[in-house]
Amino acid sequence: MIEKLKAVSPWRRFTAQPGNVGAALRKNSQFLITLAVIALAATFMLSQGSGFAVRVIQLSAIFAILAVSLNLVIGYTGLLSLAHVGFFGIGAYSVAVLTTHPAYEQVPGHIRYFDWPFFAALPVGMLVAGVVALFVGGVLSRFRDDIFVLVTFGLAVIAHRVFLFWLPVTRGAFGIHAIEKPSIFGFVFDGKTEFMLLTLGFLALVVFVSWLVVSSSFGRVLMAIREDEGAIEVFGYKARNYKLTIWVISAMMAAVAGGLSASEQTYIDPQSFVLLESIFLVCIVILGGLASLVGSLLGALVFVLLMEGMRFIDFIPDALVGQGRLAILGILIVLLMVFRPQGLVGRYKL
């Protein structure tokens, strides 16, 4: 009896018939979800004032760069990586170390100064991340599924320890202070709005490049690797090369986010690059939708609003806000896995 009721629930019956409102809703659910999320976000941000909006957009743009780049690996290639925070950190530390100015230095005599401009340091950061990714990817290419996840867990922990203990370069737990804002042709991106625009510009670039990648034949091969690596190899594709390539591309994009984040905060320390950040990123990607670039943008926006929005809920003490967000995020992930494994707007199910 119960089985029967389940099979033909009113909602099912309503939506199954073509041509009615329900069917239209189902068909366009992705578009509608996108609209709803953006509308909600915009209303909330505007109600809190423009300063808040700028902050949220700025933060979500950085998270969006990370999420889009991670989605290339998780959603399109099927490699659930938790090591992304490492590349994020490499980008951040590269920019921080290379741009440090002696005048701002707080512990003199401990580190070499480079005093490079931001726009010269960022490509170097990307290059470093890319080279590291190439080596790490070589090791990773022999693991699959859950063992792959375990090894990337390990890589994230190792990366954090390197940031923490490679004192001559990273200055350990003390961190690097007074990181310069980017400037080009005498124009300095020092205002909040200017920096937001810069970040959005980079986001647009990253999304464009990602779109180029996933809409090429290369992107389709990646999805085939995700579906059945053994089968696609029989058709003449060397899956290892494809996986390494996307891994390196993704790492370089994460390094861009790292550089921007370091410059935006003007201060970094290893605590920003712990395993938890990687877990957040995976949550964003899954929340938004696997193998969907729009999904990653939405996921980042929802995530940042969730994080920032909880500050405005009165009855939660400030000290618990961080933990409260974590709890909500965890519950959200469980619910997603149970009810909507394809995320908000994705089509691919894990």
């Binding site: 090429s216 034949s217 290369f218 389709r220 091969v221 390539t245």
Partner: peptide, 9 residues
């Protein structure tokens, strides 16, 4: 890899 990257899907 390179050829696939430059080919529109």
């Amino acid at each position: 890899v390179l050829g696939a990257l430059l080919e529109r899907a």
